[in-house]
Design a protein around this nucleic acid. Structure first.
Lengths: 205, 205
DNA sequence: TCTCTAACATACCAGCCGGTATGTTGGCTT
DNA sequence: AAGCCAACATACCGGCTGGTATGTTAGAGA
């Protein structure tokens, strides 16, 4: 009947949802446990403080979400650059309007907490560094395989790409207009094409 | 001795500072008035609620800041595209590290408040729309004057440019590394060059 | 079966929050 | 010079917050 792992996960899930919708500060512990079948006693049994809950969200939920949404799918593409473009498009298509209006969970939490709490800052920074580094790997692969111009700097492009991926969500959240996302998609695509090797001058794999 | 306009402005200024540093939710009215020579009575004489204070910051402070930092300086450039690139660089150079770590005030407030309070959302959206529209004007001018390829969509590029301007600050805030800003600057420059008309006028760093 | 610890529930608290009610005072108006 | 109102100050409040102290109960081990 008792299942500590499930209990903890249910708190984490409810907390993520509520924080994603209303922000960390504006979400109280009472509201979080109210979304579950548990009470405050259970909450503080698993998380010694409210901030600890936030740390766990960064370490576990957000990190996993970034990998699952933005990184792992890239492995399926022969041309990683094409993969980045396709994923960006597919995420637009598959994200419900309600979520588009809420922005990127990682970015939301970072903007709210990183200048307030240094532990938050480090954990959220780690997630973003991971996101960039993994993107960089694929871009390097793309360059080595002749899909990108040989003079491109994979790290630099990776930082730009991730910034666009996050910034696009932020702007759509602000403007409440999904069409903007498509506009930004076109611009990112154009940028990536501008640093891509033309098929004719592509090196043979 | 009494000077209502100055008093109001001093509250607005102190509030903006404190909110910029610690976020809206985490800044209490007591802290704001504590930064001035006034008391809570004065605060609620000028702003009927704490949210009203936030609205005034959006309408007055943030709007003016966007125009002053990003838009008005563009008038001094013959090639608006060159102006956008130069301004982006100069803002990096002139912004102290401490402020770089705090991000863009407009973006901070938007990420924190726009999904919580609809009035906030509309006001902050108006500021961002203004930012984009004014940028669009200059890009259209650039296209008509042959600095940009004739097939570029000024609105689309404006949305992308503003997104990068905001997103760059957000990312630097996250990563706490000003070098990233230069990296993003290079990418933006490269993008704008890729949609620029080559023969007419050259873009230089 | 008895024990004992982890897994929860209940009840409560000090502190701070935004906001209000009620002063007091400066200074223009007549 | 008296009146009067905007411009402030002071004192206070109910409500909610994160957090704690103290239960109670499930269930694995002996």
């Amino acid at each position: 009947m008792r299942d500590p792992e499930r209990t903890r996960a249910s708190i984490l899930g409810a907390a993520f949802d509520e924080i994603y919708h209303r922000g960390f500060h504006d979400t109280s512990v009472n509201e979080i446990v109210g979304k579950t079948t548990l009470t405050k006693g259970a909450f503080f049994h698993y998380f010694s403080t409210k901030n600890d809950l936030g740390y766990a969200i960064a370490d576990e939920v957000l990190k996993e979400m970034v990998l699952e949404r933005w990184i792992r799918p890239l492995a399926a593409y022969k041309n990683p650059v094409q993969g980045i473009i396709s994923r960006f498009r597919k995420i637009i298509e598959s994200t419900p309007d309600e979520h588009m209006a809420l922005g990127c969970p990682l970015n939301n939490l970072t903007q709210e907490m990183s200048s307030v709490d240094p532990v938050f800052r480090e954990k959220l920074r780690a997630v973003m560094q991971l996101w960039i580094s993994e993107t960089e790997k694929y871009l390097k692969k793309a360059r080595d395989q002749g899909y990108l111009n040989p003079d491109v700097n994979p790290r630099q492009v990776a930082e730009f790409v991730v910034m666009v991926e996050e910034g696009a969500f932020a702007m759509v959240k602000n403007l409440r207009d999904k069409k903007v996302y498509w506009s930004l998609y076109e611009s990112l695509k154009r940028y990536l094409e501008s640093i891509s090797q033309k098929p004719t001058e592509q090196l043979s794999a």
